[in-house]
Design a protein around this nucleic acid. Sequence first.
DNA 1: TATAGCATTGACGTTAACGTAAACTTCAAG
DNA 2: CTTGAAGTTTACGTTAACGTCAATGCTATA
Lengths: 129, 129
Amino acid sequence: MKSIQEVASEFKVSTRTLRYYEEIGLLKPGRSISNQRTFSKKETAKLKLILRGKKYGFSLEEIKEMVLLFDLDRTGIQQLERTVEYGEQKMLEIDEKIAELTQIKSEIQQLHTLFSEKLTKLKGEMLDE
Amino acid sequence: MKSIQEVASEFKVSTRTLRYYEEIGLLKPGRSISNQRTFSKKETAKLKLILRGKKYGFSLEEIKEMVLLFDLDRTGIQQLERTVEYGEQKMLEIDEKIAELTQIKSEIQQLHTLFSEKLTKLKGEMLDE
DNA sequence: TATAGCATTGACGTTAACGTAAACTTCAAG
DNA sequence: CTTGAAGTTTACGTTAACGTCAATGCTATA
């Protein structure tokens, strides 16, 4: 069980951010006798997922859905089926994102090649003078 | 040359968004005689890059740097060298993002497998009754 | 020529995701 | 026991990325 400061510095976020994530239902840390937040392994795992999600452009609202995978008591069959479906859909979305990133990379790559050649040529011209 | 409405509906953004992108220096459409914005191929290409960049979580400020690759007169050697370096760095960043996405996917994959098994088991139990 | 439909430039409004400050409590160290 | 660091809640402030509205201009067509 970690304190809010420990978690904050471990993940390089502010304590305000952690409280905010609790406020909007993303995290659900426990409480000590003196009412201080305690973060279990599960919560830090969730936080890791949240931060990774943010890094590639999901809103906290979207992330919330994904994090629910960690929280819900998946007892009923219907619940489980929905969860499984949801997971499949998310994986498809991720595949799309990867494809787009690859696309962007190749565009940059082209520009890069273009400029590199231009540069080589320019340097050559300098030697000619 | 396309009008603002043509571009807006083609890319499914608002005209306001296009004006905003001009306001912050991302796009630089030309003007018709009657002062109406005209979008060249280059501008729409830039817009495409902008929207793709947004989709995976770059801020407009970050995107601005990337879009500059399209705009600058790359005449001087120093400029070109900087540009080439910048492009290399960006490609590295993209590789990182792809790696993280792959990581997220595998985490979801694990949860998915877990729940799928649970589901299969539950369904089996139902038949046993 | 009047009217409808798109364009323009301000300028103020809105929302997400926190930052920051105030007022208070709790805990560990001297 | 006091003092300082870290915790709590409450609440107002801030910034990016637009939305929305008002006032106005061009222009094609009935």
